[in-house]
Design a protein around this nucleic acid. Structure first.
Lengths: 205, 205
DNA sequence: CAATATAATGAACACCATGTTGAATAATGT
DNA sequence: ACATTATTCAACATGGTGTTCATTATATTG
């Protein structure tokens, strides 16, 4: 299936990959040159072009790989399912799996979604959440609400994406299970009630 | 105070500014060269360097200007104030003013916060919201909540920033007043209740 | 208006990363 | 051991960079 695995090719790709990752941690992606990568990897500059068109192309392949992994998890999300876990002990398994997948590529995502990162990639991931939220929301949402559905979707997607960004930015200190619970809770009660600033009208204080 | 206003300098700056804005609408900011800008502006390439160090420097000055304008508005935000407008007819004036300020730089912000845009600028703006939310939240929030304050702040800041992004991305079709009401409503009741998917426990359906 | 100061121009320059080529060398799979 | 394929090395033209300097054009000031 993956057809070719010449040791030399694999080695070169790995060296280039490691070099790029190291450089990404140091400087802006747009500022990284082919020369930078090949010098760092101790690979002939011409060899680079036997594998990738340019640095942007190489980075794109990395991004695509990570994106596909996350997408496979996010596609299992279901708001109605998530709501059933609101006051349960155990966290919503699908969102736990998403956080675990994100953690697998934690370092790469931290960089690509940080200040030195790539806005188009961030938007693409955010859109992934959005489209999933949108698909499931349509089935549930009445149309007579004061809030247009597209804004609602943006709100939910951005808010949860924001949780992910903060998680990545703080070294993923909390467990995927904990993150999952926070997410479901905020989704249901809203930020003010969840934080205890405002009491939920029907619950005991 | 602003010391210098030689007509020639102002004219050159304006031409370069217009050229850069036009190019930003066409291609990735990182791909815009000094030659691009000066050719578009019909200005000698050398002249560019009498005003800016490079394209990044020029763009930075534009970003700083817009940022400062938004910051001046955001600094007036107060969550406790906003909560008082939850079920009122009129929108919260401070957030209306923020949307109006954003609209003033709408085209620039739409580009800089879109796929061709600048993630570090987006993060900087998001941080602006965050710091404001954080400052006001500390005064209100009990510490015994299940949700760490920093995640709560990220959630709120990202969610509202997401509303702004969607507003910019859809041609700012809704009025600042309408946006303000949507924002306050979502903040208070959370996405599910605000959308009517879940009933607020204490309110009439 | 005239005198002085300041800006913009055009041309030239060395510099550096690019992307490509072709011949030589090395490592690999079988 | 052999044919295949990957990597290396040197060289090349290209194009944007950042700087300089003499020249020209345009403002500001008295």
């Amino acid at each position: 299936m993956t057809e070719k695995l010449d040791r030399r090719k694999a080695r070169t790709r790995q060296l280039l990959h490691d070099a790029l990752m190291a450089l990404l941690a140091e400087k802006n992606a747009e500022a990284i040159t082919v020369t930078d990568v090949t010098e760092r990897a101790d690979i002939n500059r011409g060899t680079f072009y036997l594998h990738y068109r340019d640095v942007g192309d190489m980075l794109q392949q990395l991004k695509d790989g990570v994106y596909d992994g996350v997408r496979a998890c996010v596609e299992r999300l279901d708001i109605a399912d998530a709501m059933r876990y609101i006051d349960l002990e155990e966290p919503y398994p699908v969102s736990v799996a998403i956080f675990e997948e994100i953690a697998r590529h934690g370092e790469f995502l931290r960089i690509m979604l940080g200040p030195q990162g790539d806005l188009s990639f961030a938007i693409r991931l955010r859109e992934l959440f959005s489209s999933r939220v949108h698909a499931k929301l349509q089935l549930l949402s009445p149309d007579d609400t004061a809030i247009p559905t597209d804004y609602l979707v943006s709100y939910i997607a951005s808010a949860n994406f924001g949780l992910v960004l903060h998680w990545l930015g703080t070294g993923r200190a909390l467990s995927p299970e904990r993150m999952s619970r926070i997410m479901v809770n905020l989704m249901n009660y809203g930020p003010l009630v969840s934080s205890g600033i405002r009491k939920a009208p029907g619950r005991e204080g």
